[in-house]
Write a protein that binds this DNA or RNA. Sequence first.
DNA 1: TTCGTCACG
DNA 2: GACGTACGTGACGAAG
Length: 964
Amino acid sequence: MTDTSTAASPVSPAAAPSGDGSSLYLVDGSGFIFRAFHALPMLTRPDGTPVNAVLGFSNMLLKLLADLKAEAVAVVFDSKRLNFRNDFYPEYKAHRPEPPEELKPQFSLIREATEAFCLPCLEMEGYEADDLIATYARLAREAGRDVTIVSSDKDLMQLVRPGVRMMDPMKNRMIGPDEVVEKFGVPPEKVVDVQALAGDSVDNVPGVPGIGIKTAAQLITEFGDLESLLARAGEIKQPARRQKLIDFAEQARVSRRLVLLDDNAPLPKPLDELRVREPDHQKLVDFLKAQGFRTIVARVQAEMAKDGSIADAAAPSAAPAAGAPAAAPAAPQASGEAAPRVRSHSLHAVEKRYELVQDAEALRRWVERARETGVLAVDTETDSLTPATATLVGISLATEPGLACYVPLAHRAEGAAADGLLDFSAAEAPKQIPADEALAILKEVLEDPAVLKVGHNFKFDHQLFSARGVRVAPLDDSMLISYVLEGGSHGHGMDELAELHLAYTPIPFKEVCGSGKSQITFDRVPLDKALAYAAEDADITLRLWTLLKPRLVDERMVTIYETLDRPLVPVVADMERCGVRVDQAALARLSQDLSVRLAEIEKDVHALAGQSFNIGSPKQLGEVLFDVLKLGAGKKSKTGAYSTDSSVLEELAEQGHTIAQRVLDWRQLAKLKSTYTDALQEKIDPATGRVHTAFALAATNTGRLSSTDPNLQNIPVRTEEGRKIRRAFVAAPGHKLLSVDYSQIELRLVAEMANIAALKQAFHEGLDIHAATASQVFGIPLDKMTSDIRRKAKAINFGIIYGISGFGLGRQLGIPPGEANAFIKAYLERFHELKAWMEATKAFARQHGYVTTLFGRRCYMPGIQDKNPARRGFAERQAINAPIQGTAADIMKRAMARVPKALEEAGSGARMLLQVHDELLFEVPEGQAEEAAALVRRVMEGAASLGVPLVADAGIGDNWDEAH
DNA sequence: TTCGTCACG
DNA sequence: GACGTACGTGACGAAG
């Protein structure tokens, strides 16, 4: 983080340049274009020109210039695709696909942007941007100027040395020698040797096979450099590695030439011309306006109005609140009193004032502040990621950007023995408000209807507060807002969003608590570090919310957020907290039984193979089946290994190979044992006998939930063996389990959205839908329907939902793709509306980069414009599937938002436990089950009003298998 | 970590 | 005609 090169100079303690603007910033324009393009969601100008990378680039330059005072900045670009490296290694970067169509028009716009900023644009035919950067960096150093290379490209790390540093504009951090060692395991001057060995698949640098960065660093450290290593390769102990280095010595030398940057490139402009330039604000504003960048235009204009300059003119930092240590500066920060504060994320970055709150009076002041602003960002710190068992260690709050506090509640004395043994030498625990008292003070504001509480992944915090008698409301969740706005284009974790929207890297959790064996729980973190980390989280949450919330309105996504996603926060939090009862003894018995049977099968398989091997190893199994026993040709899969998945084994079994069937049996039982009977037992809370899954609300591309730790959405049901596990999910004494699931919801939605008259009619008539479609497609009367024809129609019906292909359907049905294609053709002729809908959906996806559900949720599909037909085909099938799967998910969310309230109003004691995409599982007091079933069915069937009826079926039992 | 495999909707 | 295929998930053991 610290700038080692300039800070070391006694003349310039700050990052400020020495003398006449002599410090030089070289921006890797080409590298940035690609990274920005892929990191940012697609945006277009009103005329349809894509400009997401242009916006990222402009933002980056603005921020860079704002953070600098009178330094020279130049932007360097690649010229043509080919350069001198291709003369001696034609494959260099040869496999790179053409840039995506949406990126192409942005190259010239980014050059225009550079001009609009009045910065020199440097490029030279036959050389990469990296070579020019290397050359200018060398010359500048020779002229006594400090150099900062602005790039995220690891290939430039070889240039780091005294006076030359890198700044990563995406992560907003400085890269000096330490960071290079962290990345490559060697100091900058040895980076090329490591890269020569490890190669780089992105640039098609071959390296030596089997050697990665870790091994390469170790070898170079041991032997000094590449040539010494190659000369003494015979001394290497590992035989395979030794041989590889001997065989591929020449390839390593070529690789080194490829990665070594040329610092003697011809110059497009003399170094002397790279000087500070006066910005032309009007020109810049005109350019930005032409791109439709309203927000940053406003920023630039505000700066102009303020002081007529883009450059940062922030006042020196205000004193932090009394008793509060200043937060660690997060941005690359020069030390020195006179240095301007480096902005953490924008021209209007606000001073960070973080306060440690250790007494009730101070806490009450924060509550008052929240009442004044009406908004309060909240984040909790715990000693565990499992809310059911977690201790509330502290709470952080933020009331406006930059203004945050941390309230420690259960911190231990610094240096307290981590193993819990008594340690009389340790100091007393730090001063803290008693947790009950703090919660009582906070309860007023957390439950105050006039104060909006903002969290990031608020479900977690909601659960903790709920367990302590506090029902947080009303609330907003910045994670869910991001998910609604940009689901499918990136993740929605706070760190990722901070980098994306605030160009800021939050303090990593690892930095506070360590990792691996030496990891400590948050209650052992010293208060100053805890403050910096926790207050920052609340601060960032508030900043993200400030940024993202208005976009819901602009992009007309308010209803989706407010009716589908936000209401699930308390609902799902309660489901998780409740958990589901699991009979541990039953699982243990199953485990035991499976062990015995697995051992028997294993003996059989080894006997049939004539040798002992690990059946669980696909590699060993493939070798036994195809090399030793020679059961057919084998070989599949991209990595060259034999494929041994169930389809392959089933085929072998059909040919009469007993061993294949036995392996299939073994696989099934092994899976049940490891994933279900064994692992699930570990997840049972011994105090309650219940399992608490976590439902992810912002994880999928389609709007579905997902379940983790453990995943309770994939409990076996399809086989009798598997259902034994399901029977271990039981109702509490005096209760029943109630399962209610939507019947054929996705196919109903196909009929609805594609408006297929015949299919809708069939649903209205309540027919067996697979038989009905079979009848219509193949022209067979219902009373003459055979199970085989019905099976085929069912497969096609599923295929439609998945974005059908002849190949996939053929494989599913075990028929040639040609025959499958004929079925599809017949289907699409009978249901002609479907074809039109699929084409229209794909066209929409191509045009917009996303598809929408019936309710308007967007699912972004980044691959839809891909030039590679395979990847594009994939995206097209996603584009067909996402509206269907996503609409079903939306409907289920509407139902989930309504069910708990409906139950409560009916005076039911039923509790909602689990959601499995089209099914809800409840625990109901005995005697109320039938009533609850009727009510839940009514809510689920009424969750959307469509042209096809929604039907939900209910089952009641003592365990999940019986109820299902 | 990544891969292959397989459990669910 | 390319290219490599049904959609969406999460967890496990093996192996590098």
